[in-house]
Design a protein around this nucleic acid. Structure first.
Length: 458
RNA sequence: GGGCCCGUAGCUCAGUUCGGUAGAGCAUCUGGCUUUUAACCAGGUGGUCGUGGGUUCGAUUCCCACUGGGCCCGCCA
């Protein structure tokens, strides 16, 4: 193969009359007796090959008569235009690269059934070439985050996905067993945070990991039980550093990838021009509903749950505050927005805000009304950290299944002294949704989880 | 977990109102055609109508259960 379809179309002037080799899948075929037109599709697009029987050798003729839509064909021929002006490859030789045993979806409706598209992603990619574009964007975004962090002198690391003690987030874990160690109970990680912090304690200073995390929860249009984020920790920095980093990272990605800072998402223009909006959400909520959520007792939280009709099963301060945000403020975050200054009780791993002990030094970046990054000045005080773990342990016992267990090993490491550090988790899935204008996370995950079909095919 | 909608040929869809063992286009196969682009013309192949049960002389159609999917709501990024 010497050329992709798009190269030939883009450089027709230079290539006209020259011999090329193309390869790809036959997507359409128009046979007129002594002449056949086959549209060959490669990853760059489609190009027509024009085949005159009397210009083929015997072997190619045999291939032609036995070929059908869906076959992978190689065509050697001359770049030319057909009588109707279509840029074509005038075939001299045709090779069967692989024969399809199944028929492709029809040529103009294609494959539209959502279930079939996700289950048979190979067919989706064949029939809907724009799908690949989405995953190219995803790849580029990941590359861009890595480049950004590499340029700060960070090293990429890998930490355990199978963990004894899960932590670093609030979520129900997947449970699993390790037979070799006496059927020991282990968990798929919900976060890699606590391991990365141990590296910071050890002196690594700047580390990140591309982390597939697993949370045993329902899927919807913005959540998948396994998802990808890049967590990054930087010693001797605080969360302010990362606001600047995120602004620059999102700005340069939009500009490099799309040549503009204004991206269309769901009919609205999302503008990545820094500085991004800053929403001090506790203050904002107080303005809207007259309640200061920065300190809430369990009783007050329960009262708000009723008066605001939140309908929470466990109306503890954390969930009440979180739900109030969703109800009143999330809708205002279509544009890139830093949501700032969380109540301290929502952030068991975060440093208390300097000058205000009720707030934590934490921001979440929202784009397209979705959280795409979560960052804070890390809590480094082992005594206070122990207290936060104890609080969580109490929540657990009260029935909060999402509260992570006490992590004595992590505390042990922290007691050696952890330098002031900023941490951030950058989502991969959701920014990809924004940049590829998708409303479902399944559109940015190649193989979204599907229930298994019964063996009889019903 | 709750609500609504959906599952008929490889694909995209009719048909089900009011029960009488299935249709179209594309694909595939055969024949014709040397500049088509949803090529065209003629003919053929292809279906346990998601699965199981019930009602009935008879069920793709009506009833029940199950299963898979989509959307909305509730909860987590």
């Amino acid at each position: 193969m010497t050329h992709h379809a798009k190269e030939i179309k883009d450089n027709f002037g230079e290539l006209e009359g020259r011999e090329v080799n193309i390869a790809g899948r036959a997507m359409q075929m128009r046979q007129m007796g002594g002449i056949t037109f086959i549209d060959i599709q490669d990853k760059s697009g489609k190009i027509q090959s024009l085949i005159r029987n009397n210009e083929l050798d015997e072997r190619s003729l045999l291939v032609l008569t036995n070929s059908s839509i869906g076959d992978n064909l190689g065509v050697r021929g001359i770049v030319m235009k057909s009588k109707r002006g279509e840029i074509s490859v005038g075939a001299r030789e045709i090779t069967m690269l692989s024969k399809t045993l199944r028929t492709l979806p029809n040529k103009w409706q294609g494959l539209t059934d959502t279930e079939a598209r996700y289950r048979y992603r190979h067919l989706d990619l064949m029939m809907n070439q724009e799908v690949l574009k989405t995953f190219e964007i995803r790849s580029k975004f990941m590359r861009h985050v890595r480049d950004t962090l590499d340029s700060r002198g960070a090293i990429e690391v890998e930490t355990p996905i199978l963990q004894d003690v899960y932590g670093g987030a609030k979520a129900k874990p997947f449970k699993t067993t390790y037979h070799t160690l006496d059927d020991k109970q282990m968990f798929l990680r919900i976060s890699d945070e606590l391991y990365l912090k141990r590296l910071i304690i050890g002196g690594a200073e700047r580390v990140y990991e591309v982390s597939k995390d697993f949370r045993n929860e329902d899927a919807d249009t913005t959540h998948n039980p396994e998802f990808t984020q890049i967590e990054y920790y930087e010693a001797y920095s605080d969360y302010e550093t990362f606001m600047g980093m995120m602004e620059e990272m999102m700005r340069s990605f939009a500009l490099n990838t799309f040549g503009t800072l204004k991206i269309e998402y769901q009919g609205e223009i999302v503008d990545f021009t820094p500085p991004f909006a800053r929403m001090y959400w506790v203050d904002e909520l107080r303005r809207i509903i007259g309640v200061d959520i920065s300190s809430l007792s369990d009783e007050e939280a329960a009262k708000i749950n009723d008066s605001e009709q939140l309908g929470l099963k466990h109306p503890d301060p954390y969930h009440v505050a979180d739900t109030l945000f969703d109800k009143y403020l999330k809708g205002k975050t279509m544009q890139p927005t830093f949501v700032l200054d969380f109540p301290a009780y929502m952030c068991p791993l975060t440093k208390i805000k300097r000058g205000n002990p009720l707030r934590a030094e934490r921001f979440e970046l929202y784009v397209g009304r979705m959280e795409v990054a979560n960052s804070y000045s890390e809590l480094t005080d082992p005594v206070y950290q122990r207290k936060m773990f104890e609080d969580q342990e109490r929540e657990r016992k009260k029935g909060d299944e999402e509260a992570p267990p006490f992590d004595e090993e992590f505390l042990d490491a922290m007691e050696y002294g952890m330098p002031p550090t900023a941490g951030i988790g950058i989502s991969i899935d959701r920014p990809t949704m924004v940049f590829s204008n998708q409303t479902s996370i399944k559109e940015v995950i190649l193989f979204p989880p599907m229930k298994s079909l019964p063996p009889d095919g019903s």
